[in-house]
């Protein structure tokens, strides 16, 4: 049985107050009493839309929207990143794009998020996983589907997985996600 909560969830909302308690006279005694006043707190909504550029990483997002998973590689050493980088951190050279859509992959680490940032709260519980690809030196952060979040197990680590692509791209890294490998 799920653990029962004895605390009601609260938010910042409240009544609009007309008239703040304040001394009628501003004599020294009344002004001194203001040192004992509770603080006034107000809401300050804040919203902004950013124009975010993926810059040199843009081809990766174009690829996933076309159901291809790309990454980058140092052309000399062959050092390959699970998450693309425009330049190799060891040689400093510009990397080249390679296609890893069909590379065997497995779960390197994972968690089930039962709580989270405000933006992702409606999606809880969700599974975050770091995936490792055969012949690739670093990892890729993704969502793992097709596993039961209530049955988390260390056995998921090393589990073979394969990519799935959103039919309607959102141009986010979540346009690709992973599921247990079918074969």
């Amino acid at each position: 049985m799920a653990k029962l909560t004895n605390k009601r969830e609260e938010n910042l909302g409240g009544y609009i107050v007309h008239g703040i308690p304040f001394p009628i006279e501003t004599d020294p005694d009344s002004l001194a009493f203001l040192k004992k006043m509770a603080p006034i707190q107000i809401e300050q909504p804040y919203a902004i839309t950013y124009l975010h550029s993926y810059g040199q990483d843009s081809p990766w997002f174009a690829a996933v929207s076309n159901k291809k998973l790309l990454t980058t590689q140092d052309p000399e050493s062959g050092y390959t990143y699970g998450t693309p980088r425009g330049h190799d951190m060891y040689s400093g050279s510009e990397t080249v794009w390679i296609d890893i859509t069909d590379r065997p992959a497995k779960v390197h680490a994972f968690t089930v998020c039962h709580f989270g940032s405000e933006e992702f709260l409606p999606e809880t519980p969700f599974v975050l996983a770091l995936v490792q690809f055969e012949g690739v030196n670093t990892l890729f952060l993704t969502r793992l589907l097709g596993v039961d979040p209530d049955e988390a197990s260390l056995d998921w680590i090393e589990m073979p997985v394969e990519p799935r692509f959103l039919r309607n791209s959102k141009l986010k890294p979540t346009d690709v996600y992973f599921v247990p490998a079918s074969g």
Partner: peptide
């Protein structure tokens, strides 16, 4: 670009480290 949009949550990041 790469981490936050996947489900940005530091407790999740640390939980992944510890499962490994």
């Amino acid at each position: 670009s790469w981490d936050y949009p996947v489900g940005g949550f530091y407790s999740g990041y640390y939980a992944m480290m510890v499962t490994r």
